[in-house]
Each structure stands twice: as C-alpha cells, then as structure tokens.
C-alpha cells in the first residue's frame, strides 16, 4: 500500500475539493467493476481510486494526510462485494432477462467477449460456479491471421522477408515470386500454441501488394508505357527500358507510332512453377516541350509536299 492518492486521482496537491470530486467521478465511471464486468483487473483499480478519494475527498482526512498524520492506506475495510459477483449466480435470477430486457436480444459481439469464456474453457481462469474446465482436453492451437504488405517489385521477383510475430518471434518468410494481391501464405505451426500437448495452430499471412507507378501486372506479364522522342519514333533507335529485372536496352524499329507494343520475351514474372511472363512496352511519342524554330520551319516545308490526313479511313 502507499500510492500517493493525489497521483491515483491525477490531481495536483493544491486541487480544489470540486476538482478532486470531478476527477474521482471520471475515474470511477471508467473503472467501476459493475460497469466493466468482463475486466477482472477493474476491482483493484477501483479500490485504489475509492481509497484515494476517501482520504483526499474528505477535507478532514485530507488535512491529516497532508500533515503526514495518516498514510495513504487509511484503514483497511472489509472486502466489498460487487454486484457482478452475484449477478450470474442463482440469486441474480430475478434481475436477468426481465420483460423488455435480455431475452431475444443479441449480446455484444467481438472477440473480447469470449476471452474470459475461453479462459474458463481451458481451466486457466477461475470458474464462476461451473466446476471443471477443459484442462485435460488435448487440442490444436488457434490459427492466427495476419496481413503483410509487400511492394510491387518484391512480389514480382519474390524474396525472403524477416517478419516479427506479435509474440516477438522473428521468422524468415519466403515470399514466392509472382505472389498476387490477396494470396495467403500458410506458415505451419506458427499460430497459437497447442493445448495440453496438442499441435500448434498455423499462421495465415494474406499478402497485400502495393501498386507500382510504372508497371502494371496482368497475370505473369508486365506492361509499361515508355515515352520516345519524335526522331526515335521516325528513325528508330536504341532506348533504355526499365523492367522488373532492371534496365534493358531495346531497339525501337523505324516508324514506331504511339501505341506500338514491343514484347520483351521472358522479362515478365517468373513464377515458382509455370513459364515466365513477358514484358510489354507500350511506346508513346512525346514531342519536345517547346518546338524549336528549326523543327517548325522544316515541318512547314515538309507539310507543303507530304501532307497526310491520319483521320481518313
């Protein structure tokens, strides 16, 4: 015993009576065991809060405490009984499921609700009137489910990733090349521990793949738009293209229009099984930002002789 009651209530030494009362009410609302029925620790916290308030909430006792005449424990009171200790027993029957209340209504959802039920199930917690847990049942551990975000290139190429499970265990996971968004990897035996010698559960890791700015994936093929200059389009030439395996020099044939597609065989995704995909380069003519005088005058004379209408069928 001996926690500073001012600290317990979170108020300053010179707090007014009203401030102390306000702080106490806020904490009591939060921690009252009958308002935190599922939380076993609430009784201890509430006890500390009540005890602190009993001392500094009472001007007489507060004076004596401040003067060092009494300590923070005050005097011990007999263990008090909360309503929740009776509510589910036989005596509580008359307050359960009364007209317009419990019957036919769904309880709160969520996994927390089951947590202490589970501890009852496995005999870890105290049974509340229902004797005998399941402490002798041999059972497989619970499966754990996770998501793991990998970037586009990691997913395309595949790689080993070191991950840390919530229990602190570090684990090297092989992300297979060509793993798809939403695909799930199974890590055998990396779920919850088995019960009474049962095998451990598995961990299921769902992969989320972040998109790439330039690459688009279709099956095992990769598509990308690649700009080329006017002269490269007309005359052809060698350009550097980014692929998932790194840069590659590619020949643009003379007279390549916007929309022309080059297929780079085998440069797509190489999956664990099956054949490698291809990389499709979609060419796009990009004019200079500001056409220079020379280009303009050349095209003017060129147009006079070679005008064509690409919109004519």
């Amino acid at each position: 015993m001996g926690e500073d009651p001012y600290k317990v209530l979170g108020v300053k030494k010179d707090a007014s009576e009203a401030e102390i009362k306000k702080a106490y009410r806020a904490l009591a609302k939060k921690y009252h065991p009958d308002l935190n029925i599922e939380d076993k620790g609430a009784a201890d916290r509430f006890k500390a809060i009540s005890q602190a308030y009993e001392i500094i909430g009472d001007p007489e006792k507060r004076k004596r405490f401040d003067a060092g005449e009494i300590d923070s424990s005050g005097q011990e009171k007999p263990e008090r009984q909360f309503y929740r200790q009776y509510a589910e027993g036989n005596e509580g029957f008359k307050y359960r499921g009364r007209p317009g209340q419990g019957f036919g209504q769904g309880g709160p959802g969520g996994a927390e609700m089951f947590e202490d039920v589970f501890s009852d199930l496995f005999g870890r917690g105290g049974g509340r009137g229902f004797e005998g847990g399941f402490s002798n049942v041999r059972m497989r551990g619970q499966d754990a489910r996770y998501t793991l975000t990998v970037d586009f290139l990691e997913a395309a190429r595949g790689e080993r990733r070191r991950i840390t499970l919530p229990d602190g265990e570090a684990l090297d996971v092989t992300i297979p090349s060509g793993v798809e968004d939403g695909q799930t990897l199974r890590l055998k035996g990396k779920g919850g521990a088995g019960v009474n010698g049962g095998p451990a559960g598995d961990a299921y890791v769902t992969i989320a793949v972040t998109p790439h700015a330039d690459f688009e994936r279709k099956g095992n093929d990769i598509h990308s738009d690649v700009p080329m200059s006017l002269d490269e389009a007309v005359l052809g030439g060698k350009i550097e293209v980014q692929t998932i395996g790194g840069p590659l020099t590619v020949t643009v044939p003379p007279g390549s229009n916007t929309g022309k597609t080059l297929r780079l065989k085998g440069r797509g995704i190489t999956p664990g099984k099956g054949t490698a995909g291809d990389h499709y380069v979609h060419l796009k003519v990009v004019l200079p930002e500001t056409p220079d005088a020379e280009l303009k005058s050349f095209l003017e004379s060129w147009r006079a002789k070679h005008h064509y209408d690409p919109r004519k069928g």
């Binding site: 009958d34 029925i37 589910e88 509580g92 359960r96 499921g97 309880g107 709160p108 005998g132």
Partner: peptide
C-alpha cells in the same frame, strides 16, 4: 441498469452453453 442486466443475462446464457458443452 438495463444494459448491465442485459450483459449479465447474455453472460449467464453463455455460461449455460459452455456448461452443456463441458
């Protein structure tokens, strides 16, 4: 009070169910 009663009612039934499983 009604919420507290509903919660205890739900928990009571849950424990009955568990007792039946046991």
């Amino acid at each position: 009070l009604s919420l507290i009663d509903q919660l205890h009612t739900a928990r009571f039934r849950l424990h009955l169910l568990l007792d039946a499983v046991r």
